[in-house]
């Protein structure tokens, strides 16, 4: 009966080790917690990078001039108030997914998320 065994004990140990190692690596690379953050650009320059995991509300100034108030809550970010005339940035509401963006052309502010869950598209065509 012994002779009919296909694998030696060392084979089984080897297979087990490789399997455990592989599944660990797969789990790690697919479910690695990504840091969920928002990048704020003002006048084309990096203004601030903020974590979306901590709730907060802050103001954005450029060269001492108040531009807008931004709020972070439960992993999402929005513009609460802005000095621009159209308030498109305020009406955009909350964004939380990677690739989503809030743009304020008059104040030259761009807010986009990074490291979050992806949107379902790469780009958006609009007027």
């Amino acid at each position: 009966m012994r002779n009919l065994k296909i694998f030696a004990r060392t084979d089984i140990i080897l297979i087990l080790i490789v399997t455990v190692f592989l599944s660990g690596w797969l789990t790690f690379s697919y479910f690695r917690p990504t840091s969920n953050k928002a990048v704020i650009l003002v006048h084309g320059k990096m203004y601030k990078t903020v974590s979306l995991d901590k709730d907060s509300t802050f103001k954005i100034f450029w060269k001492g001039v108040y531009l807008m108030t931004v709020q972070i809550k439960s992993g999402a970010i929005r513009v609460v108030k802005s000095t621009c005339p159209l308030k498109i940035c305020v009406h955009t509401g909350w964004i939380s997914k990677d690739g989503q963006v809030i743009v304020c052309v008059p104040n030259r502010v761009i807010i986009h998320t990074e490291g979050a869950k992806s949107t379902s598209y790469d780009l958006m065509t609009s007027q």
Binding site: T92, T119, L123, M124, Q127
Partner: peptide
């Protein structure tokens, strides 16, 4: 590239339809 068509009565990030482009150009008037 997967491109969303903005919902004209939605917000900036609200797509109403999608297309897939390997080349060419796409523009919207609204």
């Amino acid at each position: 590239w997967k491109i969303g068509i903005r919902n004209p009565r939605g917000t900036m990030n609200d797509a109403i339809s999608y297309v897939y482009l390997y080349k060419g150009t796409i523009a919207t008037s609204g």
